[in-house]
Each structure stands twice: as C-alpha cells, then as structure tokens.
Amino acid sequence: MEALFASAVGVLTAAGIFLILRRRTFPVILGLSLLTYAVNAFLFATGRLALNAPPVLNKYKEVAYTDPLPQALVLTAIVISFGMTAVIVMIALSAYLSSKTDHIDLPLAEEAGEDE
C-alpha cells in the first residue's frame, strides 16, 4: 500500500511540475493545484498509513493508531490552498482581461529592442 501511495504522490508531483512549465495561465493554476494535492497526500502519509486504526491511543488495548497531527495539518493546508487558488485565479483573470490573452509571453532581448 505504501508503494502505491508513494507512486501516486510522485505522479501528482510530476504532473504538477509539467503543468507549471506551460505557457498559459490555466495549466499553471492546475499544476499548482496538483502540487498542493501531492503535498497534502505526503503530509497525510506522515501520520502512518494504517487501515481501520483510530486517530487516538486507547489505554485499554494495545492497537495501532494513527497520528492526528498530520490530519489536522492537512485540513489546514486544504483551506489555505483553496484561498491561494482563488487569489491566483483572480490575478490570472485580471491579467487576461487587461491583455485579452492568457498566453504568457516573455519578450526576448532582440524583440524588446534591448542591446546586450
């Protein structure tokens, strides 16, 4: 189960980085979201991957338990990432409305008229 979970985090990270390197704003926003999901899954996995285990230690039974701190961190990270995604979408929307395109163009030195 750990290998499947680790490969899923790796695929999410790779897809997120691939989309961030695109030249349009919408794939960049999707890539940031995928990276956020990968980090959240990684944080969740730090609390031990155990099936049907309680998040607290029971003093009457010797059973495995999962750490509740990473779960709380993931919930906080989900809220923060939702807010940051909304901010990024609004910045991209304002850039689109001002330039009428969502293409990210970085002018080259010869196109901008600058001499090296």
Results as ranks from 00 to 15, higher is better:
Lys61Ala: 08
Thr13Gly: 05
Ala8Gln: 06
Tyr96Ala: 03
Phe82Ser: 15
Phe26Arg: 15
Ser81Ile: 05
Ala3Val: 01
Gly47Lys: 07
Met1Leu: 06
Ser99Asp: 11
Ala77Val: 05
Ala64Pro: 10
Asp102Asn: 10
Phe42Arg: 06
Glu114Gly: 09
Phe42Gln: 08
Glu114Tyr: 04
Pro27Thr: 02
Ala95Trp: 03
Lys59Thr: 00
Ala45Lys: 03
Val63Tyr: 02
Gly83Met: 07
Ile17Thr: 08
Met84Ala: 04
Leu30Trp: 03
Thr85Trp: 00
Ala86Leu: 15
Ser81Gln: 01
Phe44Arg: 00
Val87Glu: 02
Ile17Ser: 04
Leu57Phe: 10
Leu43Ala: 02
Leu69Asn: 05
Ala109Asn: 02
Leu75Asp: 03
Pro27Asp: 03
Thr46Tyr: 00
Ala3Gln: 15
Gly47Phe: 12
Lys100Leu: 10
Leu75His: 06
Glu111Gly: 08
Thr76Met: 11
Val74Lys: 02
Thr36Asp: 13
Leu4Glu: 08
Pro107Met: 11
Thr85Ser: 15
Arg22His: 15
Ala6Lys: 06
Gly16Val: 05
Leu49Glu: 12
Phe26Cys: 00
Lys61His: 07
Val11Glu: 12
Ile78Gln: 06
Arg48Lys: 15
Glu111Ala: 09
Asp105Trp: 11
Val9Tyr: 07
Leu108Trp: 10
Ser94Ala: 11
Ala92Asp: 09
Arg48Tyr: 14
Leu106Pro: 05
Leu49Ala: 03
Val56Ile: 08
Ile80Ser: 05
